[in-house]
Amino acid sequence: MQTKPIALTILDAASVIVLGIAAYLALVFAPTELVMGDVQRVFYFHVGTAWVGLLGFLIAALSGVVYIITKDMKWDRFEVAAVEVSTMFFFITIVLGSIWARPAWNTWWTWDPRLTTAAVTELIYVAYFMLRQGIEDPEKRARFGAVYTLLGGISAPITFMVIRLFRTIHPVVIGNQSAAAQGGFDMTADMRTAFFFALFAFTVIFIDLMWHRLRLGAFQEKVEQLKLKVSI
């Protein structure tokens, strides 16, 4: 068994540290927003997790395409790792968004383009795992997974466009169109520091988790191969 690389251990420690700093910046350092109050502090982590969630989705779709072309199992591991990590981050994004939306929009959920697309994307991820679970042959699992991430990667942006086009044609009935009423605000310099640091922190954590998941994938593959050898 491979030992854990030192760089990974360092990255683990770095993730914990940057998460701590990001939490401090978001919860203490950044000034309280005038209109919304303390609940606005959720925003820093909300955008941070959403950013890495989308990053993971993009990586997954791309590695799906690369797998179809090269047929190298390495890219399949990459794809699974990206989907798994970003599913978790996306879920956190949705939960944090709901927590913010309750006081700001006075509802846990609306069928706004972004929210709808987030929900549909999450459902595509879940379907992806169910698809993979039902297939034993690792090579076939990788093929089907790649095809499905490709389909999902094309379909999700179209969903976003469809809903946004409809909303611009038909006026929004509930809620006002102006930015302030929807919860928009201008950031001060301190807020911006906290915001960009949160983005950075979650990127570090994302890379760390991806790395762990990739190693786990390699081990899984090895175990599967050993099992096959024993059964023969």
Partner: peptide
């Protein structure tokens, strides 16, 4: 598998 991917067409 189908419904999340087919949402744009249904919408």
């Amino acid at each position: 598998l189908l419904f999340p991917v087919a949402i744009p067409v249904l919408l």
